[in-house]
Protein backbone atom coordinates (compact mmCIF):
# COMPACT_ATOMS: atom_id res chain seq x y z
CA UNK A 1 0.00 0.00 0.00
CA UNK A 2 2.02 2.97 -1.24
CA UNK A 3 1.13 6.43 -0.15
CA UNK A 4 2.04 9.74 -1.63
CA UNK A 5 4.00 11.69 0.97
CA UNK A 6 4.93 14.61 -1.26
CA UNK A 7 2.12 16.87 -0.06
CA UNK A 8 3.05 16.62 3.59
CA UNK A 9 6.76 16.94 2.81
CA UNK A 10 6.04 20.11 0.84
CA UNK A 11 4.09 21.53 3.75
CA UNK A 12 6.96 20.79 6.11
CA UNK A 13 9.54 22.40 3.83
CA UNK A 14 7.38 25.47 3.25
CA UNK A 15 6.96 26.20 6.96
CA UNK A 16 10.58 25.31 7.64
CA UNK A 17 12.03 27.60 4.98
CA UNK A 18 9.64 30.42 5.75
CA UNK A 19 10.57 30.38 9.43
CA UNK A 20 14.28 30.07 8.68
CA UNK A 21 14.12 33.15 6.46
CA UNK A 22 12.27 35.15 9.09
CA UNK A 23 14.36 34.31 12.11
CA UNK A 24 18.08 33.52 12.11
CA UNK A 25 18.10 31.69 15.41
CA UNK A 26 15.63 29.12 14.06
CA UNK A 27 18.44 27.16 12.44
CA UNK A 28 20.61 27.31 15.57
CA UNK A 29 21.84 23.96 16.90
CA UNK A 30 19.89 24.23 20.13
CA UNK A 31 16.60 24.93 18.42
CA UNK A 32 17.11 22.17 15.87
CA UNK A 33 17.94 19.67 18.58
CA UNK A 34 14.81 20.62 20.43
CA UNK A 35 12.73 20.32 17.30
CA UNK A 36 14.13 16.88 16.55
CA UNK A 37 13.57 15.73 20.10
CA UNK A 38 9.94 16.76 20.34
CA UNK A 39 9.12 15.67 16.81
CA UNK A 40 10.52 12.24 17.65
CA UNK A 41 8.43 11.95 20.79
CA UNK A 42 5.26 12.95 18.95
CA UNK A 43 6.08 10.63 16.07
CA UNK A 44 6.35 7.67 18.44
CA UNK A 45 2.85 8.19 19.82
CA UNK A 46 1.66 8.90 16.28
CA UNK A 47 3.01 5.53 15.18
CA UNK A 48 1.41 3.93 18.21
CA UNK A 49 -2.04 5.16 17.31
CA UNK A 50 -1.45 4.43 13.61
CA UNK A 51 -1.59 0.71 14.36
CA UNK A 52 -5.15 0.95 15.62
CA UNK A 53 -6.18 3.58 13.09
CA UNK A 54 -5.14 1.19 10.30
CA UNK A 55 -7.56 -1.40 11.69
CA UNK A 56 -10.28 1.24 11.56
CA UNK A 57 -10.15 1.81 15.33
CA UNK A 58 -9.00 4.67 17.53
CA UNK A 59 -7.23 5.15 20.85
CA UNK A 60 -8.24 8.18 22.89
CA UNK A 61 -6.45 7.02 26.03
CA UNK A 62 -2.90 7.70 24.89
CA UNK A 63 -2.42 10.87 26.92
CA UNK A 64 -3.73 9.26 30.09
CA UNK A 65 -1.65 6.14 29.59
CA UNK A 66 1.42 8.37 29.32
CA UNK A 67 0.36 10.12 32.54
CA UNK A 68 -0.22 6.81 34.31
CA UNK A 69 3.03 5.24 33.15
CA UNK A 70 5.03 8.31 34.10
CA UNK A 71 3.35 8.46 37.50
CA UNK A 72 3.83 4.79 38.29
CA UNK A 73 7.44 4.97 37.19
CA UNK A 74 8.17 7.99 39.35
CA UNK A 75 6.31 6.50 42.27
CA UNK A 76 8.18 3.21 42.18
CA UNK A 77 11.56 4.73 41.60
CA UNK A 78 10.90 7.19 44.39
CA UNK A 79 10.47 4.21 46.68
CA UNK A 80 13.89 2.96 45.71
CA UNK A 81 12.73 -0.05 43.70
CA UNK A 82 15.22 -1.43 41.21
CA UNK A 83 14.89 0.71 38.03
CA UNK A 84 14.96 -2.33 35.76
CA UNK A 85 12.04 -3.82 37.68
CA UNK A 86 10.23 -0.50 37.42
CA UNK A 87 10.65 -0.50 33.65
CA UNK A 88 9.40 -4.06 33.39
CA UNK A 89 6.36 -3.12 35.44
CA UNK A 90 5.42 -0.16 33.26
CA UNK A 91 5.91 -2.11 30.04
CA UNK A 92 3.72 -4.93 31.35
CA UNK A 93 1.22 -2.37 32.61
CA UNK A 94 0.90 -0.62 29.25
CA UNK A 95 0.78 -3.87 27.29
CA UNK A 96 -1.92 -5.06 29.69
CA UNK A 97 -3.93 -1.92 29.06
CA UNK A 98 -3.75 -2.58 25.32
CA UNK A 99 -4.80 -6.16 25.88
CA UNK A 100 -7.76 -5.00 27.92
CA UNK A 101 -8.81 -2.57 25.19
CA UNK A 102 -8.44 -5.25 22.53
CA UNK A 103 -10.48 -7.79 24.47
CA UNK A 104 -13.26 -5.32 25.22
CA UNK A 105 -13.40 -4.33 21.56
CA UNK A 106 -13.27 -7.80 20.01
CA UNK A 107 -14.87 -10.09 22.57
CA UNK A 108 -17.41 -7.78 24.22
CA UNK A 109 -17.77 -5.96 20.88
CA UNK A 110 -17.66 -2.46 22.30
CA UNK A 111 -16.75 0.44 20.08
CA UNK A 112 -13.10 1.54 20.24
CA UNK A 113 -14.13 5.15 20.75
CA UNK A 114 -16.14 4.26 23.84
CA UNK A 115 -13.60 1.86 25.34
CA UNK A 116 -10.68 4.23 25.00
CA UNK A 117 -12.70 7.27 26.04
CA UNK A 118 -13.45 5.51 29.31
CA UNK A 119 -9.77 4.60 29.45
CA UNK A 120 -8.86 8.26 29.06
CA UNK A 121 -10.85 9.10 32.19
CA UNK A 122 -9.98 6.00 34.15
CA UNK A 123 -6.18 6.02 33.80
CA UNK A 124 -5.96 9.73 34.54
CA UNK A 125 -7.99 9.25 37.68
CA UNK A 126 -5.93 6.24 38.66
CA UNK A 127 -2.67 8.16 38.18
CA UNK A 128 -3.89 10.95 40.41
CA UNK A 129 -5.15 8.58 43.07
CA UNK A 130 -2.01 6.44 43.21
CA UNK A 131 0.26 9.47 43.53
CA UNK A 132 -2.08 11.46 45.71
CA UNK A 133 -1.88 13.94 42.85
CA UNK A 134 1.66 14.96 43.93
CA UNK A 135 4.27 16.11 41.43
CA UNK A 136 7.31 13.89 41.40
CA UNK A 137 10.77 14.03 39.93
CA UNK A 138 13.57 11.66 39.04
CA UNK A 139 16.62 12.25 41.16
CA UNK A 140 19.80 10.25 41.20
CA UNK A 141 19.21 8.08 38.18
CA UNK A 142 21.80 9.54 35.87
CA UNK A 143 22.42 6.38 33.90
CA UNK A 144 18.74 5.89 33.13
CA UNK A 145 18.23 9.57 32.53
CA UNK A 146 21.08 9.51 30.09
CA UNK A 147 19.70 6.51 28.30
CA UNK A 148 16.21 7.92 27.82
CA UNK A 149 16.89 11.62 27.43
CA UNK A 150 20.60 11.99 26.82
CA UNK A 151 22.36 13.34 23.77
CA UNK A 152 24.76 11.85 21.32
CA UNK A 153 27.31 14.23 19.82
CA UNK A 154 27.38 14.45 16.03
CA UNK A 155 30.35 16.49 14.86
CA UNK A 156 31.70 19.25 17.05
CA UNK A 157 28.66 21.09 18.35
CA UNK A 158 25.55 19.15 17.38
CA UNK A 159 23.82 16.56 19.49
CA UNK A 160 21.16 14.10 18.54
CA UNK A 161 18.68 13.53 21.38
CA UNK A 162 17.99 10.01 22.65
CA UNK A 163 14.27 10.00 21.61
CA UNK A 164 15.43 10.34 18.04
CA UNK A 165 17.17 6.97 18.24
CA UNK A 166 14.12 5.41 19.81
CA UNK A 167 12.03 6.78 16.97
CA UNK A 168 14.41 5.37 14.36
CA UNK A 169 14.20 1.97 16.01
CA UNK A 170 10.40 2.06 16.29
CA UNK A 171 10.01 3.39 12.75
CA UNK A 172 12.21 0.70 11.23
CA UNK A 173 10.38 -2.03 13.12
CA UNK A 174 6.98 -0.58 12.18
CA UNK A 175 7.92 -0.25 8.52
CA UNK A 176 9.18 -3.81 8.37
CA UNK A 177 6.14 -5.08 10.22
CA UNK A 178 3.59 -3.22 8.11
CA UNK A 179 5.15 -3.68 4.69
CA UNK A 180 7.16 -6.84 4.87
CA UNK A 181 5.34 -9.25 7.14
CA UNK A 182 2.22 -11.29 6.69
CA UNK A 183 0.64 -9.65 9.74
CA UNK A 184 1.18 -6.19 8.30
CA UNK A 185 -0.63 -7.23 5.15
CA UNK A 186 -3.39 -8.77 7.26
CA UNK A 187 -3.70 -5.55 9.23
CA UNK A 188 -4.30 -3.51 6.08
CA UNK A 189 -6.70 -6.13 4.74
CA UNK A 190 -8.60 -6.07 8.01
CA UNK A 191 -8.79 -2.29 7.98
CA UNK A 192 -10.15 -2.25 4.45
CA UNK A 193 -12.71 -5.00 4.73
CA UNK A 194 -12.96 -6.93 7.94
CA UNK A 195 -15.47 -9.43 6.57
CA UNK A 196 -13.45 -10.34 3.52
CA UNK A 197 -10.35 -10.66 5.70
CA UNK A 198 -12.18 -13.08 7.97
CA UNK A 199 -13.48 -15.11 5.04
CA UNK A 200 -9.89 -15.35 3.82
CA UNK A 201 -8.92 -17.13 7.02
CA UNK A 202 -7.44 -14.20 8.88
CA UNK A 203 -7.99 -14.23 12.62
CA UNK A 204 -9.27 -10.70 12.76
CA UNK A 205 -9.88 -10.66 16.51
CA UNK A 206 -6.32 -11.63 17.36
CA UNK A 207 -5.00 -9.08 14.93
CA UNK A 208 -7.06 -6.28 16.41
CA UNK A 209 -5.97 -7.21 19.91
CA UNK A 210 -2.39 -7.20 18.69
CA UNK A 211 -2.87 -3.71 17.25
CA UNK A 212 -4.14 -2.37 20.58
CA UNK A 213 -1.32 -4.06 22.49
CA UNK A 214 1.28 -2.57 20.16
CA UNK A 215 -0.37 0.82 20.45
CA UNK A 216 -0.43 0.88 24.24
CA UNK A 217 3.04 -0.62 24.60
CA UNK A 218 4.54 2.02 22.32
CA UNK A 219 2.59 4.59 24.31
CA UNK A 220 4.14 3.17 27.47
CA UNK A 221 7.60 3.55 25.95
CA UNK A 222 6.71 7.13 25.02
CA UNK A 223 5.53 7.64 28.61
CA UNK A 224 8.95 6.67 29.93
CA UNK A 225 10.65 8.96 27.41
CA UNK A 226 8.38 11.87 28.25
CA UNK A 227 8.91 11.31 31.97
CA UNK A 228 12.68 11.48 31.74
CA UNK A 229 12.53 14.30 29.25
CA UNK A 230 10.35 16.47 31.45
CA UNK A 231 12.17 15.22 34.53
CA UNK A 232 9.06 15.72 36.55
CA UNK A 233 5.62 14.19 36.53
CA UNK A 234 2.33 15.97 37.17
CA UNK A 235 -0.21 13.16 37.51
CA UNK A 236 -3.03 15.52 36.60
CA UNK A 237 -1.54 16.94 33.43
CA UNK A 238 1.42 14.97 32.07
CA UNK A 239 0.42 13.74 28.63
CA UNK A 240 -2.86 15.61 28.53
CA UNK A 241 -4.19 16.01 24.95
CA UNK A 242 -1.35 13.93 23.51
CA UNK A 243 -3.83 11.50 21.99
CA UNK A 244 -5.10 14.33 19.87
CA UNK A 245 -1.62 15.16 18.58
CA UNK A 246 -1.00 11.50 17.89
CA UNK A 247 -4.24 11.16 15.94
CA UNK A 248 -3.60 14.43 14.13
CA UNK A 249 -0.15 13.23 13.09
CA UNK A 250 -1.58 9.94 11.89
CA UNK A 251 -4.31 11.59 9.85
CA UNK A 252 -2.06 14.28 8.44
CA UNK A 253 0.47 11.59 7.64
CA UNK A 254 -1.95 9.68 5.46
CA UNK A 255 -3.89 7.30 7.70
CA UNK A 256 -7.57 7.26 6.95
CA UNK A 257 -9.78 7.04 10.02
CA UNK A 258 -11.85 4.61 7.98
CA UNK A 259 -8.91 2.25 8.23
CA UNK A 260 -6.81 0.38 5.76
CA UNK A 261 -4.19 2.97 4.91
CA UNK A 262 -1.11 4.40 6.55
CA UNK A 263 2.51 5.30 5.93
CA UNK A 264 5.28 5.39 8.52
CA UNK A 265 7.30 8.03 6.72
CA UNK A 266 4.32 10.28 6.11
CA UNK A 267 3.39 10.04 9.74
CA UNK A 268 6.86 11.02 10.96
CA UNK A 269 6.89 14.06 8.71
CA UNK A 270 3.40 14.95 9.91
CA UNK A 271 4.49 14.75 13.55
CA UNK A 272 7.41 17.01 12.68
CA UNK A 273 5.04 19.49 11.02
CA UNK A 274 2.99 19.76 14.21
CA UNK A 275 6.06 20.38 16.37
CA UNK A 276 7.50 22.72 13.77
CA UNK A 277 4.36 24.83 13.96
CA UNK A 278 4.78 25.32 17.71
CA UNK A 279 8.35 26.30 17.17
CA UNK A 280 7.56 28.66 14.30
CA UNK A 281 4.80 30.41 16.21
CA UNK A 282 7.36 31.19 18.89
CA UNK A 283 10.08 32.13 16.46
CA UNK A 284 7.86 34.39 14.41
CA UNK A 285 6.53 36.17 17.48
CA UNK A 286 2.92 35.26 16.78
CA UNK A 287 0.68 35.46 19.82
CA UNK A 288 0.75 32.08 21.53
CA UNK A 289 -2.97 32.45 22.11
CA UNK A 290 -3.34 31.64 18.44
CA UNK A 291 -1.33 28.42 18.80
CA UNK A 292 -4.22 25.96 18.73
CA UNK A 293 -6.08 27.88 16.04
CA UNK A 294 -3.07 27.85 13.75
CA UNK A 295 -2.27 24.20 14.31
CA UNK A 296 -5.88 23.24 13.69
CA UNK A 297 -6.04 25.30 10.52
CA UNK A 298 -2.75 23.93 9.17
CA UNK A 299 -3.75 20.32 9.81
CA UNK A 300 -6.99 20.93 7.98
CA UNK A 301 -5.15 22.59 5.10
CA UNK A 302 -2.68 19.71 5.01
CA UNK A 303 -5.41 17.09 4.79
CA UNK A 304 -7.09 19.05 2.01
CA UNK A 305 -3.81 19.45 0.11
CA UNK A 306 -3.15 15.73 0.47
CA UNK A 307 -6.55 14.95 -1.03
CA UNK A 308 -5.90 17.30 -3.96
CA UNK A 309 -2.47 15.83 -4.64
CA UNK A 310 -4.01 12.35 -4.69
CA UNK A 311 -6.66 13.39 -7.22
CA UNK A 312 -4.08 15.08 -9.38
CA UNK A 313 -1.96 11.92 -9.35
CA UNK A 314 -4.94 9.86 -10.54
CA UNK A 315 -5.57 12.30 -13.40
CA UNK A 316 -1.90 12.32 -14.36
CA UNK A 317 -1.81 8.54 -14.52
CA UNK A 318 -4.93 8.50 -16.71
CA UNK A 319 -3.41 11.06 -19.06
CA UNK A 320 -0.16 9.13 -19.24
CA UNK A 321 -1.92 5.88 -20.06
CA UNK A 322 -3.86 7.67 -22.78
CA UNK A 323 -0.68 9.05 -24.29
CA UNK A 324 0.99 5.63 -24.21
CA UNK A 325 -1.98 4.04 -25.89
CA UNK A 326 -1.96 6.74 -28.58
CA UNK A 327 1.75 6.22 -29.14
CA UNK A 328 1.23 2.50 -29.59
CA UNK A 329 -1.29 2.95 -32.37
Amino acid sequence: MKKNNLGILGLFLAIFIFTALQNDSFLGAGNMQNLIKWSSLYAIIGLAVAFVVITGGIDLSIGSVIGLVASVLALMMGKGINPAACLVVVVVLSAGIGLLHGLLITKVKLQPFVVTLCGLLFYRGLARYLTDNQSMGFQGHDALDNFFSGKMPIGSNFFLPAPFFFLVLVAVLATVFLNRTVWGRYLFALGNNENAARYSGINTDHLKILAYVVCSTLTGLAGVLFAFELNSVQPASTGEFYELYAIAAAVLGGCSLRGGTGSVLGLIIAAAVIRLLYNSINMLGISTHLEYAIIGAVILAGVIADELVKRYAVKRRAAKALAEEAARR
Partner: peptide
Amino acid sequence: GLILAMSVRENASLPSLRRDHRHGFL
Protein backbone atom coordinates in the same frame (compact mmCIF):
# COMPACT_ATOMS: atom_id res chain seq x y z
CA GLY B 1 -14.76 -11.92 -1.26
CA LEU B 2 -12.42 -9.04 -1.95
CA ILE B 3 -10.44 -6.27 -0.37
CA LEU B 4 -11.51 -3.80 -3.03
CA ALA B 5 -8.83 -1.21 -2.28
CA MET B 6 -6.04 -3.75 -2.65
CA SER B 7 -4.35 -4.92 -5.80
CA VAL B 8 -4.94 -8.05 -7.84
CA ARG B 9 -1.72 -9.47 -6.41
CA GLU B 10 -2.63 -8.77 -2.80
CA ASN B 11 -6.12 -10.20 -3.18
CA ALA B 12 -5.15 -13.29 -5.08
CA SER B 13 -2.41 -14.16 -2.60
CA LEU B 14 -4.24 -13.32 0.63
CA PRO B 15 -5.30 -16.84 1.70
CA SER B 16 -2.01 -18.41 0.65
CA LEU B 17 0.21 -15.99 2.58
CA ARG B 18 -0.15 -18.30 5.55
CA ARG B 19 1.48 -21.06 3.54
CA ASP B 20 3.99 -19.03 1.55
CA HIS B 21 5.52 -16.80 4.21
CA ARG B 22 9.10 -17.13 5.32
CA HIS B 23 9.23 -16.84 9.12
CA GLY B 24 6.37 -14.36 8.95
CA PHE B 25 7.89 -12.28 6.18
CA LEU B 26 6.11 -11.85 2.88
